[in-house]
């Protein structure tokens, strides 16, 4: 423990700016992945364990699109939309067949899919490390804010994540479609009885959740190494965030992702060796005290 260093850092503007931005950078990409996981759970009641693999696909799609077109926008679109469509297909062809069954059956299906996707990536791209490369637009020195430094790309990344989160939240809470989706989460029979095509809605929500994972993967592609199996650690982290924030709560995911981000950013200064243990401990604590998570509804 080094509280002195922590206090020192907080009292210096440059350190505070750098560390706060670090927390946001770590947290916001995590939020983007987690929001998709949480959305799918909230509406469909299933845990999409393939979410990490979708993130990986997003990164590889972006990598390919960037290599072909050289356009960063195209790479983001390819990652997000490509994975979104794949997610819808996966929901229709596979996942919908295990709705209402044992959670273990869903887990098994997802595991099979992870195995297939990881191997597929290896067959297509080989086992080598890949890096998409930083687009020229962002090849700038880091921006200086009050003596602290923040890279331009990270500002963009945090912006996209925040925007996506905001759009998602507004979409669910302020639109007619959002109202239907919320109703779907609570009483699908009633929604179906009103003549709304629930099958399409389910696929749409699953696709949207997958799209968010794909977008996160595409955003990560310029700065993180692409390898088969890269989704595993992301899955575990976003899983922890989902549990802490509350299964199915977007706002909870946001809060928990920030919490993890800041714990890691300031933990690196104050208590460097505890950060990992702290995450598990936090998860266990939340589960014991309030199993439904910080902002989750009580279990039905």
């Amino acid at each position: 423990m080094n509280l002195e260093a922590l206090v020192d850092c907080l009292s210096s503007a440059s350190c505070a700016v750098t560390q706060v931005s670090t927390g946001l950078i770590v947290g916001m990409l995590l939020f983007l992945v987690t929001s998709g996981l949480s959305l799918i759970f909230g509406v469909l009641g299933i845990i999409n364990f393939t979410h990490g693999a979708f993130y990986m696909m997003g990164a590889y799609f972006a990598f390919t699109a960037y290599a072909l077109t050289g356009s960063f926008l195209a790479s983001m679109a390819a990652g997000a939309i490509g994975v979104g469509l794949f997610g819808m297909a996966f929901e229709r062809l596979v996942m919908s067949r295990v709705y209402g069954r044992d959670i273990l059956m869903q887990l098994l299906v997802c595991y099979a899919m992870i195995l297939i996707l990881d191997d597929g990536v290896k067959i297509l791209y080989g086992g080598e490390y890949r890096m998409m490369g930083m687009p020229d637009v962002f090849a700038l020195p880091p921006v200086e804010i009050a003596g602290g430094f923040v890279p331009g790309y990270y500002l963009f990344m945090v912006g996209v994540a925040l925007a996506a989160g905001l759009v998602l939240w507004l979409g669910i809470n302020r639109t007619r479609l959002g109202k239907i989706v919320r109703a779907l989460a609570i009483n699908p029979q009633m929604v179906g009885a009103l003549g709304i095509n629930t099958t399409l809605l389910y696929a749409g929500v699953f696709g949207l959740g997958s799209l968010l994972a794909g977008l996160a993967g595409a955003l990560a592609a310029p700065i993180r190494t692409l390898t088969p199996g890269m989704g595993v650690s992301i899955l575990i982290e976003s899983f922890i965030v989902t549990v802490i924030g509350g299964m199915g709560s977007i706002a909870g995911a946001f809060l928990a992702a920030l919490l993890i981000g800041f714990t890691r950013a300031f933990g690196a200064i104050g208590f460097p060796l505890f950060v990992d243990g702290l995450m598990f401990a936090l998860m266990a604590l939340v589960l014991v005290v309030k199993p439904s998570g910080l902002l989750g509804r009580e279990a039905a």
């Binding site: 596979v94 098994l108 899919m113 195995l115 297939i116 191997d119 290896k122």
Partner: peptide, 10 residues
């Protein structure tokens, strides 16, 4: 084997 095992499980 991932491809094969995954397909068999599915």
């Amino acid at each position: 084997h991932g491809l094969v095992l995954g397909t068999v499980i599915l």
